[in-house]
Design a protein around this nucleic acid. Structure first.
Length: 438
RNA sequence: GUGGGUGUAGUUCAGUUGGUUAGAACGUCGGAUUGUGGUCCCGAAGGUCGUGGGUUCGACUCCCAUCACCCACCCCA
């Protein structure tokens, strides 16, 4: 407890005993993305603040009250200090990088994915941290609904591979700027008529973004919202056709979904399709994946007009859902051979042997604690060593030692000559995999 | 920003209407005839009971403040 300072609020340490969970999710995500033709992209942890203001939206909560600014202690040459902020999400940075590096001038569609940490200054709670991690995927160039279907299918596929069948898909369309304007007008008219019933925050929303009222958790507002016009009735012909095509694509792929006209999304760049994968198993913050189409963003950021869409998954939420479900993680690899040694000469030899084994790709360990043989055995057991070899004066003299299989307890003779590693390999493969060929 | 809950060993927790050297389990380290792990047995280390005040002869226990963490609202992954 006498620690100099503890971790910042809303951040998390992942100890070695727990990383395997992260690794299984990260590897599975990368594999799935690449299977669908997405390639990894990397971009900075911080960007110019204006990037987020223009993409995520100046009026959103994320931009208004949740961003972490980054300032250098001393601005260079008396110039104005740079205005950077830690990324609160990945879509903006990925889009900026795609434009800046000319990806969008290459063969379309461009499909990218990323594994990043994001930062939002919120009050932490279950499934919500200030530094959190996202697996995201973005697809640039296609305005067709089959692209929406592909992106959703990829997300679904990852969830399936992780063993998460307790996650439900909800989709909606919030239309293009044209039909949304119509809808906003209708919404505003409706709520204006019932202003007196709305909660204070919703009165505010009425001016800024009336669609958010639909999302309000206050029972009174929900009641008022029940009679509100539905976006789907206001979609223009193109948006409506797009949504229909998406639905039939999903059905054709046997991907189950529900339509939820209340899904609005809190980021300004979305158009047409929006979707969420939600679980009820990890508390109030059950959105494990959220995404949608953002056909106007690339142009808004200075690129050529390019339709685009994507999604992000919260890695800690995924892991929590998996833990809760009892889904399987790929266990961490254990030590292959532990070299127990006694006496100076044997200890010296153990250092060399470990190096040679490691050069051949084996996970070898030896004692650096100067402990007796018994504690060494205990340690070998503790770290899950598959085999242990005991080295002492006797062995060095005779040039042979006992190789112990820790699972069975059986020991076999093994020569300590220059064929040692080959011999060990044979025994290792034989006993671990049951056959001599890998 | 607004509510609610919880703070006792590394971890998970006991601790009776306030009573003297604060306990267990797991973990760590060690021992059980000095060269062999896992089970069992024995032992050791490890806590200013979140922090600061107050009440009291006496506080882990009661009161106040403060901090931290957790959960929920809001928002989102």
């Amino acid at each position: 407890m006498a620690i100099i300072t503890n971790r910042p609020k809303g951040t998390q340490d992942v100890v070695p005993a727990e990383v395997y969970k992260w690794q299984t999710v990260e590897r599975c995500a990368a594999d799935t993305a690449e299977c669908y033709g997405f390639r990894e992209i990397r971009f900075p942890t911080f960007e110019n603040t204006s990037l987020f203001k223009r993409s995520v939206g100046d009026t959103t909560d994320v931009v208004q009250k949740e961003m972490y600014g980054v300032t250098a202690k001393s601005p260079a040459n008396g110039k104005d200090p740079d205005d950077f902020t830690l990324r609160p999400e990945g879509t903006a940075g990925a889009a900026r990088a795609a434009i800046e590096n000319g990806l969008l001038n290459d063969a379309l569609p461009q499909k990218v994915y990323y594994m990043i940490s994001c930062f939002r200054h919120e009050k932490p709670q279950a499934g919500r941290l200030r530094e959190f991690h996202q697996f995201g995927a973005e697809m640039y160039g296609s305005g067709d609904a089959s692209a929406d279907a592909e992106v959703i299918a990829m997300a679904k596929s990852l969830l399936d591979r992780l063993g998460l069948d307790n996650v439900e898909l909800f989709i909606n369309s919030i239309g293009c700027p044209k039909c949304r304007a119509e809808y906003h007008k209708a919404l505003k008219e409706y709520f204006d008529g019932r202003k007196s019933e709305l909660c204070p925050t919703c009165l505010d929303r009425l001016e800024r973004n009336p669609m958010r009222i639909l999302d309000c958790k206050s029972p009174v507002c929900q009641d008022v919202a029940k009679g509100a016009p539905v976006i789907l009735d206001f979609l223009c012909e193109e948006c409506s056709a797009h949504f229909e095509k998406l639905k039939s694509c999903l059905s054709a792929m046997d991907i189950e979904f529900s339509i939820d006209p209340k899904i609005v999304r809190g980021l300004d760049y979305y158009t047409k399709t929006v979707f969420e994968f939600i679980t009820k198993d990890i508390g109030a913050q059950g959105t494990v994946c959220g995404g949608g189409r953002y056909d106007g963003l690339i142009e808004q950021l200075g690129g050529n007009p390019t339709p685009a869409l994507g999604f992000a998954m919260g890695l800690e939420r995924l892991i929590m859902t998996m833990e809760n479900k009892g889904a399987e993680f790929v266990p961490a690899k254990k030590c292959d051979l532990y070299i127990a040694a006694m006496g100076d000469k044997a200890r010296e030899k153990s250092v060399v042997m470990a190096k040679q084994l490691r050069d051949e790709g084996y996970r070898a360990e030896f004692d650096t604690m100067n402990r007796g043989i018994k504690p060494q055995m205990k340690y070998a057991n503790k770290i899950g060593a598959a085999f242990v070899i005991v080295l002492g004066d006797n062995e060095l003299e005779s040039g042979a030692a006992k190789l112990k299989n820790m699972a069975s307890g059986e020991q076999a003779d093994i020569a300590l000559d220059d064929k040692f590693i080959d011999n060990f390999s044979n025994i290792f493969v034989e006993e671990m995999f049951g056959s001599a060929d890998i």
